[in-house]
Design a protein around this nucleic acid. Structure first.
Lengths: 234, 234
DNA sequence: CGTTTAATTGACCAGTATCAACAGGAGTGG
DNA sequence: CCACTCCTGTTGATACTGGTCAATTAAACG
């Protein structure tokens, strides 16, 4: 038993293996959830604890069950870039190389389901639907990464924050209010900005009535169309 | 015959379906090249011609046979971000959604091999090795995208250019000289800079003896270790 | 309460963008 | 062969977005 947490007790079965708000075509995917879930193990990750670090052996991948994580890369002098925020049902840690390309840390008390890489690859060999699903997950992440490349390369601070708030609004899918689980520093390192610019830009949005900030972690968006115009979509 | 160019004549068979400089483990991949090549069609793309545009139907994907292309996204006001430069043997255009997420344009006279998406997906269903290979290609692109996210979010202009030159050096794999097929504008839109900053930074490298520029398109790197230090790897 | 940490705000600065001029080739036509 | 134009790239002067440094406020926690 290589994991440092016990297996899930019977009723607490892992979340179903499918993407979150998924509107894409879904070819022949039913019926294989149980296959993969059979190899999943539930793991708890305390806040601020690293689940794995950049360069460590990528012998497993994960799905968020509850809580939230960030994946990030570091430069030699400590500059940090956050690749992604991971919310419930998100997959992460699936790699091409034998080592993880970024580290994963919980930004609040979190539970994840761990899938053995070797067992997954064996399953994918036997059942092409599993492979199809892994490909779908990876392509989704690639699409998201390409959108971030546009954002980081060509958008202004204002556009970055507007895009970010819209993304969180969609992902949390809870009306017009978002609870931001991450700190301002995390937002800054996600958008390629500094904490001060994040704070200033959000304050400007608040002054202009585009958002309300009942607490620093809670953002209310009365009219998301205004944000969409500021986000300057393609 | 939906394509606008004739099929390859017999001796000009499509390039083998495998990644370029690939050092990763290569599990059970031999023997399926012919399967996919049977559905490949060779297409010529003149310089500056668009192969497909953002939002068009993604009913096929491609491999570069000769020449070079760029994939890019646009913002409403015309700001452009280049996702990737595609050189011989590179794959591109494989999508999760029914539409292409970016456009692809030849930056010199180019030939590509076109693969039908529907046929590919059928093949992948029948033979898990095909699916494994598509996943491998996609994961490789995801890794590259994540490196670009770090570059765009956290690196300085100097570090961006150093990283770019090293990347081109590795990809062209021809000693210490690189022939840049793309213009300064393309480099700028790839690195999230302006053409002037690209030019200035390259001139600074030249003045410091880090590179030589026999022509604006040819870069000679006497000592790539110097560039590696400037690139500020993780 | 006092202490610590996160977030906000302000003053100033630097890196890169913007605007503009200039140089070097590649065609083109006289 | 030589202007002439066009296009790409280089260089310079200046502006501005966002970064840095610093102080203040607010929130969290014992």
């Amino acid at each position: 038993m290589p994991t440092h947490m016990p297996k899930a007790i019977s009723p607490a079965q892992p979340a179903p293996l499918r993407s979150g708000a998924d509107t894409a075509p879904d070819p022949g995917r039913a019926g294989n959830d149980d296959l993969l879930n059979a190899v999943g193990t539930v793991i708890s990750v305390p806040q601020a604890r690293e689940l794995y670090c950049e360069g460590s052996s990528a012998d497993a991948w994960f799905q968020v069950r509850s809580g939230a994580l960030r994946t990030c890369k570091l430069l030699l002098d400590g500059r940090r870039q956050i690749d992604a925020f991971l919310l419930p049902n998100d997959f992460f840690g699936f790699e091409r190389l034998p080592e993880h390309g970024s580290s994963a840390e919980a930004i609040m008390p979190t539970t994840v389901v761990r899938y053995s890489r070797a067992r997954t690859e064996k399953l994918a060999d036997e059942d092409s639907r599993i492979g199809r699903q892994l490909l779908d997950i990876t392509l989704k992440q690639l699409n998201a990464a390409q959108d971030r490349i546009l954002l980081l390369g060509r958008k202004t601070a204002e556009e970055k924050l507007a895009t970010f708030l819209l993304e969180m609004l969609v992902r949390s899918s809870g009306g017009d209010a978002v609870d931001l689980p991450m700190s301002r520093i995390d937002i800054a390192d996600y958008l390629g900005l500094t904490i001060e610019t994040v704070s200033r830009t959000l304050s400007a949005f608040r002054r202009e009535g585009i958002i309300r900030l009942p607490t620093p972690q809670t953002v209310v968006v009365p009219d998301r169309f205004v944000l969409e115009r500021l986000a300057g979509a393609s």
